[in-house]
Design a protein around this nucleic acid. Sequence first.
DNA 1: TAGATTGTTAATCGATTAACAATC
DNA 2: TAGATTGTTAATCGATTAACAATC
Lengths: 221, 221
Amino acid sequence: MSTPVPEATVARLPIYLRSLRELAEMGVKTVSSNRLAELSGVNAAKVRKDLSYLGSYGVRGVGYEVGYLIFQTSRELGLTGDRGIVIAGAGHLGQALANYPGFAQKGCRICAMVDIDPQKVGGELGGVPVVGPDRVSEVMSRNPGAIVVVATPATVAQEVVDRFVRAGAHSILNFAPVVLNVPEGVAVRQVDMALELQVLSFYAEQGERSALAKGVESVPS
Amino acid sequence: MSTPVPEATVARLPIYLRSLRELAEMGVKTVSSNRLAELSGVNAAKVRKDLSYLGSYGVRGVGYEVGYLIFQTSRELGLTGDRGIVIAGAGHLGQALANYPGFAQKGCRICAMVDIDPQKVGGELGGVPVVGPDRVSEVMSRNPGAIVVVATPATVAQEVVDRFVRAGAHSILNFAPVVLNVPEGVAVRQVDMALELQVLSFYAEQGERSALAKGVESVPS
DNA sequence: TAGATTGTTAATCGATTAACAATC
DNA sequence: TAGATTGTTAATCGATTAACAATC
C-alpha cells in the first residue's frame, strides 16, 4: 500500500487541522504551505512533506483548498465517525475531563467512567455513567476502538491499563505519572505536567547560568 | 565548556529522576543502566549516554549510586533551589493547578495567579494570591526565573504571553490550544489533551483498518 | 582473576529542510 | 507567458543503539 505516515507527521496533523479550522472560520478558501506553516509554527517544506503523505491535495501555483484539506486531514486522523472515550478514574481529574466541553466539539463522546468507589458506581458524573471495574470488558465491547483516558492514581495505573488491554483497548492517554507497560500494537500517549515543568526548569536554570556568565542584567523596568 | 545536553536527553531526565526516587524509596542503593532503562521504558545504551552528559557518575562493574544520581540529576534540572511558578488565568484549570499537591513536593512554589476578573483580583485561590495584569511585571521581578503556566482561554493566550515575556519570562508551560510566538531564548512546552487524543484517534483508526484488512476478530471473551 | 557494567565509538536510522523541476 | 506554489529529491542534521574497550 502507500507509505506509512511517520510518527512525527501524525503528531503535527492535529496542529495543521487547528490552523485550517481557524482559517475556515475566517472565511479563507485557499492557503499556501507557507501561510499554513506560519500559523502552525513549523517549516513550510515540512508542511508540504507532511501533507504529501495524505495525497496530492494541493494545486501548484495556487495552494491548498482549506475545506477539502480539513476533510482529508480529519479523515486521516479518524475523526469522521464518533470516537468513544472511556475515562478510568472518577477523581478530580476524571471529573474535570468529563466536564471538558472540548470533547464533544471534536467528535468525541465519553461513553463511561470507571471507578472502584462503591459510592460513585451506579451514579453519573457530568452526565456520564460511572461503572465498576467488573464492567470494563462490557464497556469496551460496546464501544470498539474507544480511547482509554487513565486518570487514576499512579499506584494503580498499570493494573487498570492491564485490565483495559485485556478487554481490547488499543489506544491509551495516560495522565498518571508512571511508565506504562503495554503489549505491541497498543498506542500510549503521556501527559505529565510535572515532567514538563522539570524540563522547563532545566532551561530556566540554563538561562540564569548563561545570563550570569555573560553578566546580562534583567530587562530594565 | 562541556557539550550542551541534547533536547531529547533533557526530556528524559525527569523520567529517570522519577524512577530513581522510586528506587530510593524502596531502599535500593545502587542501580545498573539496564535496570534504570527497564523502569523508565527506554534503551539501556540511551540511559548511559544520557547520564554521561551529566558526568561520569557511574562505576564500571557496579552501576550508579541511586542517591548521588538523584542529587546530580536534580541539580542539572535546576530543582535544587525553589522554583517559582506564576499561573496566568484563574479559571477552572488555573484553580485545579493551584490546588495540585505535586508542585510543592517537587520544590516548586506557586507565587501568584494573574487574572483579569475584578471579582478575583485581590483575593486568594488555594492559598495563592490573585493579582491583576498590571502587576505582571512586579511579580516577575520579585520571582526571577519563575515559570509561567498559561491557563487562559486560547483567544487571549498570545497577548498574555507577550506581556509576561516583556516582563522577563523565559519559560512557559502552555495549556491553551494555540501555537505561541515567542522570541528566541524563551522556552515553551505545550500540553494539549485534545491534540493527544487526535493522535491516538489516528492509531485507533489504523488498528481498525488493518484489523479489517487482515480479517482479525476482536479478542474472544 | 573472572564477571559485570560503564562510557564511548561508530554505524544506523529517521526526521528536517534547502532546493528545484513540475505545473497550475 | 510570467509568477506562484506544489511535490519530491537529496543533502544534512540529530538521535538511537549495537558493540566493545576500559575498568571496577
